Simulated assay, not measured.
Amino acid sequence: MRKLPYILPLLLALLVAGCGKQESDLPVNTRLGGEFTLTDHNGEPFSQAQLKGKVSILFFGYTHCPDICPAVLARVAQVYRQLQEAGEADQVQPVFITFDPERDTAEHLNEYLPWFKADIIGLTGSLAEIREVATQYGVVFIKDQEEQDYLFTHSDYIYLLDDQGRVRKLYPADFTIDEVVTDAKSLL
Rank of each mutant, 00 (worst) to 15 (best):
181 V>I: 09
86 A>P: 06
102 E>F: 09
138 G>P: 11
134 A>W: 07
57 I>K: 05
83 L>T: 13
169 K>V: 13
173 A>C: 00
12 L>M: 11
18 G>I: 05
86 A>Y: 08
9 P>R: 11
5 P>V: 06
97 I>A: 00
153 T>N: 10
125 G>T: 03
117 K>Q: 13
103 R>H: 12
126 S>R: 05
128 A>K: 11
56 S>N: 03
112 Y>A: 12
147 E>G: 15
151 L>G: 10
8 L>M: 13
176 T>W: 08
72 V>Q: 11
79 V>G: 01
43 G>T: 04
29 N>G: 01
119 D>C: 00
26 L>E: 04
3 K>Q: 08
151 L>C: 01
25 D>Y: 13
3 K>G: 00
69 C>F: 09
96 F>D: 10
75 R>S: 15
52 K>P: 06
142 I>D: 02
19 C>Q: 14
178 D>M: 10
186 S>Y: 11
72 V>C: 03
30 T>D: 08
62 Y>I: 07
110 N>M: 07
71 A>V: 09
122 G>R: 05
172 P>A: 13
151 L>V: 00
60 F>Y: 10
108 H>R: 15
40 D>C: 03
36 F>E: 04
77 A>G: 08
15 L>V: 05
3 K>L: 15
24 S>D: 01
140 V>R: 07
85 E>D: 14
35 E>Y: 09
100 D>P: 10
54 K>I: 05
164 Q>C: 01
133 V>H: 04
167 V>W: 10
146 E>D: 15
181 V>H: 06
57 I>W: 02
143 K>Y: 06
54 K>N: 14
145 Q>K: 13
26 L>V: 08
150 Y>H: 02
116 F>P: 03
53 G>Q: 03
40 D>V: 09
16 V>S: 08
101 P>D: 02
138 G>A: 12
84 Q>I: 08
129 E>T: 00
39 T>F: 04
166 R>E: 15
5 P>R: 06
169 K>D: 08
48 Q>G: 12
9 P>H: 12
79 V>Q: 06
88 E>P: 00
78 Q>C: 00
175 F>A: 01
25 D>I: 14
15 L>Q: 07
15 L>S: 14
42 N>M: 09
113 L>R: 01
44 E>G: 02
152 F>N: 05
135 T>D: 15
124 T>V: 02
117 K>V: 01
168 R>K: 14
80 Y>R: 00
157 Y>I: 03
31 R>H: 15
104 D>F: 01
73 L>I: 04
10 L>G: 05
107 E>W: 01
183 D>F: 12
176 T>L: 14
110 N>F: 10
169 K>I: 11
180 V>H: 12
142 I>G: 07
108 H>Y: 13
79 V>Y: 01
182 T>L: 09
116 F>R: 06
137 Y>Q: 03
171 Y>N: 07
90 D>H: 15
188 L>T: 11
138 G>V: 07
57 I>T: 11
55 V>R: 02
8 L>T: 12
39 T>G: 12
129 E>M: 07
107 E>G: 10
29 N>V: 05
151 L>K: 03
48 Q>D: 10
163 D>V: 03
129 E>I: 06
62 Y>A: 12
63 T>R: 01
16 V>L: 15
30 T>R: 14
159 Y>H: 13
176 T>V: 13
156 D>N: 14
12 L>N: 06
92 V>Q: 03
69 C>I: 08
37 T>S: 12
